[in-house]
C-alpha cells in the first residue's frame, strides 16, 4: 500500500529511500524533499504544545493529487516519510502508525549494530526486508 519509504538523517541527508517502482524514484525524492519543511514546522509547533501533540507521529503532512505523505520524527531527529496512494481509502490512521512503529523498530535495530556508523546510508538486509513488508501489503 505504501509506494515509497524514506529515512532522513539529522541534517536532512537521505539515509535510505525505497520506492515500489525504481523508475519513479526521482519523483518521490522531490516529494520527500518538499515534505521536510512541513516536518520541521510541525515539530516546532508540537514542542510548544503539551500532551498529545508531542507524539513522534506527525500525521498527514500534505496530500498531493495522487499521493498522501505521512511523517514521523524520532527523539533523535531522524525523520521517516511514508508515501501512500490517495486512491487507497481503506487505510486507517492506525495502520499508518503501525507502519511507522515497524520502521522505527527496524531502524533502532540498525543503529544498535556496531558495524553501522550513525549517519551513513543504511544497507542492511534485515532493514530491507522489513521495509519490503511495509511496501507490499496488498
Amino acid at each position: 500500500m505504501a509506494v515509497a519509504v524514506a529515512v532522513i538523517g539529522k541534517e536532512n541527508s537521505p539515509l535510505y529511500v525505497r520506492t515500489v517502482n525504481p523508475s519513479s524514484e526521482l519523483k518521490f525524492m522531490y516529494t520527500i524533499h518538499a515534505s521536510l519543511d512541513v516536518v520541521e514546522e510541525k515539530v516546532i509547533v508540537g514542542k510548544k504544545s503539551s500532551g498529545e501533540l508531542r507524539e513522534l507521529y506527525l500525521g498527514l503532512l500534505y496530500p498531493t493529487e495522487d499521493y498522501k505523505v505521512y511523517g514521523y520524527v524520532t527523539n533523535t531527529r531522524i525523520k521517516f516519510i511514508i508515501i501512500v496512494e490517495s486512491s487507497y481509502t481503506t487505510l486507517r490512521d492506525n495502520d499508518i502508525r503501525q507502519m511507522f512503529r515497524k520502521l522505527h523498530n527496524a531502524y533502532s535495530d540498525v543503529v544498535c549494530n556496531p558495524f553501522y556508523v550513525p549517519g551513513d546510508t543504511i544497507c542492511s538486509k534485515q532493514f530491507e526486508s522489513s521495509v519490503k513488508g511495509i511496501l507490499i501489503q496488498e
Binding site: 514542542k47 508531542r54 513522534l56 520524527v73 524520532t74 527523539n75 533523535t76 523498530n105 531502524y107 533502532s108
Partner: peptide, 10 residues
C-alpha cells in the same frame, strides 16, 4: 538511546 526513546513522547 535510540532504542530507549522509541516509545517516548517528544
Amino acid at each position: 538511546v535510540e532504542r530507549l526513546t522509541k516509545d517516548w513522547p517528544r
